[in-house]
């Protein structure tokens, strides 16, 4: 049962990167909006880059999530 407890704790710790991903996503969208309000004509051209950055950043958080899932279910 101690192993079970350790697994649950480990899974919880593995979910911590989600905080970083959240900060990163906030930065991406916030900076995109700040730029878009300053220069609305250039916003459309950069939307693709923004979505790409979103996906790349989100991946960092999801990696933590996957690790949590693996700890919980795969071991």
């Amino acid at each position: 049962m101690e192993v079970e407890a350790a697994k649950l704790i480990g899974a919880g710790i593995a979910a911590v990167p989600l905080a970083g991903a959240g900060v990163g996503l906030g930065l991406i969208f916030g900076n995109f909006l700040a730029g878009a309000f300053r220069n609305p004509s250039a916003a459309a051209a950069n939307q693709q880059t923004m979505l790409l950055a979103f996906a790349l950043t989100e991946f960092t958080g999801l990696l933590g999530f996957v690790i949590a899932m693996i700890i919980l279910y795969a071991f």
Binding site: A55, F59, L62, L63, F65, V66, M69
Partner: peptide, 16 residues
């Protein structure tokens, strides 16, 4: 790895 895991993890997380 990142390309495959990104899609997988998004779907997994969303459905869970």
């Amino acid at each position: 790895i990142s390309l495959g895991v990104r899609l997988f993890a998004n779907m997994l997380a969303g459905h869970i």
